[in-house]
Amino acid sequence: MICFPNAKINLGLDIVSKRPDGYHNLETVFYPIGLKDALEIVPFDNSVACADLQSVPTEDYRFFQTGIEILGNADDNLVVKALKLLAAEKEIPHIDIHLLKKIPFGAGLGGGSADAAFMLRLLNETFSLGYSDAELENRAAKLGADCAFFIKNKPAFATGIGNELEEIELDLSHYFFVLVKPDIFVPTKDAYAMVSPQTPQTSLKEIVKKPVSEWKEWMKNDFESSVFKKYPEICRIKEELYELGAVYASMSGSGSSFYGFFEKPPLTPPQGEIWRGTI
């Protein structure tokens, strides 16, 4: 079976407080977008040579990865971790895993988390494991803070470390959407280190109810001010999106990707564009 894990963007992001465990409490709105990876699982095929692609032979699975190169050990990939998490609870046949990576990592788009959550769903459906959505969300949260969002994959107001979700009504499908990923990597740890937590005066859950044309005055991403100081070239992307006519533009997560909502397609796409279309 095959599925297509999609990216998400953050509509606003408030860093509320530092937690005793070293993490931060935040408030944000997760919104799914159409940029996608491809993930397939098939019965173990002995005719496929282990030298092909980036396969890693084990007793339980082989992992094949193409598209954007993912460095490191396959055992550290969230897709494989998702498999191992369920395999510790249920009997799962030996499988070949094929991942085509199109969502850039280190971009604030949740691509790795999406792959992990979709893997949980794919295994559950393929092998009739019997998990409910709530049970899958619980297991997804063990893999990453925003993994649980991708189980239901619907707009949600997120609190805690991004793992406490409240579904909201929000439809941005009538806007034209542009996503830009510059060739700059912003380490998440560094982004958090430059932010001073504070409780927002108005909750994002209320701000997203306002017209999108008013979001520019109300909605912010706490990471932007500190990231812009260190990477002024990133700030220029946001300025360019507004110059092109965006009704709202923002960095997603801790960056470095930016998105803009337009009432009509911009005539000149910004440099670094990786995806555009209706959301």
Rank of each mutant, 00 (worst) to 15 (best):
A114G: 09
K81F: 10
L71H: 13
I207G: 07
A38Q: 15
G12V: 05
V56R: 13
F44G: 00
S203I: 02
P270Y: 07
F261Q: 03
P265E: 15
I274R: 07
N153Q: 04
G34Q: 14
N138T: 11
G108I: 00
S225P: 00
R276G: 02
L165M: 04
R19M: 05
T66D: 14
C3L: 06
H24I: 04
D190F: 04
G34V: 00
L179C: 04
K230H: 11
S254G: 03
G255T: 09
M1Y: 10
R276I: 04
N163C: 05
F258R: 01
Q198F: 01
Y61K: 02
L244W: 00
V56H: 07
L179I: 02
K210T: 13
N46Q: 11
K205L: 05
E206L: 14
A107M: 05
G67T: 08
C235K: 14
P211S: 07
P197L: 04
S196D: 14
G67W: 04
K181V: 12
E233R: 11
D146V: 07
K181W: 06
G34K: 15
N153K: 03
A82M: 05
P20H: 01
K36Y: 03
L53K: 12
D76I: 00
I15H: 02
R62S: 14
C147A: 10
